[in-house]
Design a protein around this nucleic acid. Structure first.
Lengths: 120, 120
DNA sequence: CCTTGCTATCGTATTTTTACGATCATCATC
DNA sequence: GATGATGATCGTAAAAATACGATAGCAAGG
């Protein structure tokens, strides 16, 4: 047990989850923000920017690449990373659609009551 | 070691990561979609809807509650869940801002080249 | 009160994530 | 070819996530 049952869910929900997971660590958010801000994007610069070891940053970059959000191109001896515009647009739509699909029409329950805490 | 160094990052990036993590599993996406679709939201209905054990669903609900995205109210012997409108708006803004902060101006590198694979 | 139904929590096993140092591979330069 | 720099990968360890069955806690109904 303990195996992730991703097969049991829809493709759409899995896609959203995959994009969300890419954003689910502050280091990766910081990397993406850095890539967005500085259009140039040498790997070493990212390592310098973050409070993490080079290998750890490389691992995060690998995950972002696996999620499809970034591209990397070899430039001589360095590697240049950047946002993948197409994938980014897809992520924006997937997550945006879900987020926008809720509109506050007065929640069904607990309109003005307290949240239940850990204990009920 | 393997300890998460969340403290080393900005509050904003951590907040985004927290919301994203809540969406980072298809089961939780499905739960949220279900809560959005059906305004009524008894816990048992969610259990019936998903291919997961009751305890697992309860755990996912707990995480969504911890992330602040949903509210739960006791209704007699059942518990009624719903989206927390305020928190949802916050998540929408946080994630939306990040996603919208990138605009395709022709990527800095690899404009039309191949993605680098695992091996360079 | 005793039972029944609903939900949360506990205990546990497995998998995945996170992090680091060490090493390897590759390109550029000497 | 040797050297140096850059970045990926390996090995490893610790932590967190995922899943389930079992159990506990509560409210409602008999």
């Amino acid at each position: 047990m303990g195996l992730s049952k991703h097969d049991e869910f829809t493709l759409r929900d899995n896609r959203i989850a995959r994009y969300a997971k890419a954003l689910a660590h502050p280091a990766r958010v910081a990397i993406l923000r850095f890539l967005i801000h500085k259009r140039s994007c040498v790997c070493g610069d990212i390592v310098d920017e973050l409070p993490l070891a080079q290998s750890t940053v490389s691992q995060h970059l690998k995950e972002l690449k696996a999620a499809g959000l970034i591209l990397g191109e070899i430039e001589g001896t360095t590697v240049c990373y950047c946002i993948d515009p197409k994938a980014w647009a897809m992520a924006e739509q997937c997550l945006g659609d879900l987020l926008k699909s809720f509109t506050d029409g007065g929640s069904c329950c607990a309109p003005a009551k307290q949240t239940i805490a850990t204990k009920r």
